[in-house]
Design a protein around this nucleic acid. Sequence first.
DNA 1: CCATCGGGTAGCCGATCGGATGATGCCGGC
DNA 2: GCCGGCATCATCCGATCGGCTACCCGATGG
Lengths: 208, 208
Amino acid sequence: MTVRLVLVDDHPVVRAGLSALISGTDDLEVVGEARDLATARSVVAATRPDVVLMDLDLGDGPGGAAVTAELRALDEPPRVLVLTTYATEADILRALDAGASGYLLKDAPAPELFAGIRATARGETVLAPSVAATLVRRAASPGPVVTEREVAVLELLAQGLGNREMAKELFVSEATVKSHLSHIYTKLGVDTRAGAVAAAIERRIIRR
Amino acid sequence: MTVRLVLVDDHPVVRAGLSALISGTDDLEVVGEARDLATARSVVAATRPDVVLMDLDLGDGPGGAAVTAELRALDEPPRVLVLTTYATEADILRALDAGASGYLLKDAPAPELFAGIRATARGETVLAPSVAATLVRRAASPGPVVTEREVAVLELLAQGLGNREMAKELFVSEATVKSHLSHIYTKLGVDTRAGAVAAAIERRIIRR
DNA sequence: CCATCGGGTAGCCGATCGGATGATGCCGGC
DNA sequence: GCCGGCATCATCCGATCGGCTACCCGATGG
């Protein structure tokens, strides 16, 4: 029984590379490739694959999480296995929330990747060890967990926005932003904006 | 005349993928692969390739620029063609400064990549269009470069320290710290501490 | 020899931040 | 049905920051 795959990645080298790798197996087959949301939509509709290998960072435009969500909204949706470079808490949660069946990192050896694809096709959930660790830490920790809204603030904060600008960006008042910031400071154990950015990056809550 | 290649990339998928792609040509040959400085050193010494395809982001440890510099310091060094995902000004300059002969992006189509490798083997300098544009833009304008002292401030800033604390840490007065910060803001084109941290990380001036 | 640059210092002042306190509405679990 | 967490908003106020101007010193270099 052959597993039919579609690759979604904005890098031709990675697509061609994965394709070449997979062609070396006898039970996996690449039936389509896409570089963005639009092509992914049509390719998946046309080929109806078992599994979609999804990169999260698609350059400009909608990210892999958005593409995943859209594919999962189809009738008889394909399973989506995320295959990406980074694994921040926010990335992982967004992808899984969008309906991904698994999360592997591009630094995984080929055999693990193949095993992950087969497992995904069988309906299993596969997670890279570090991703699993992040999720466990998050689930098991009685400690402070930043909320979705707080992550949003952190991301804007890392872009150097002031309270007023963040408020405008999030369609809330400055008071609300300050409230979120206070909670963030408490949860991360810091007391300045720059410190919060550092801690958030350190704990991989946000990227770069 | 075959061009002998060594791949340096921390992603097995990319290595295997490039390898598979290149095996489809009749004048390029992969004679070795490495995922970090140590393996790169020994593989290059053992195989003496014509061209090294170098990823800049090698995960933990020394980056691709450092590896490039070390390889270029050998007797009869191989030419190094950088093949990476991002192209910040700092990345480009560091790589070229380390002795890279070219800078291509991973989103380049395979034929362009092959052409780039052949050109590099011939001793030509190949640059991705966007990279060339960045260099031209920079050459045309006197680019601001952060000084050593300013980097020190940035590093402390990324740890969330206040002016007073940074002053104490650097054995200078608060006024001096503020002076450095002002210069940093001007050079990076920002006007807040969080923004400076973001810009500094973005341009790879400081690490994580 | 003097201009330039990196580095260090100072004071002033308006803008912003950070902390404290308190309040409302909504939702989900017990 | 009550309680807690999340998100929202509001005020107040001291601490800090950011921009500005101006000065000194040593090294570097046309």
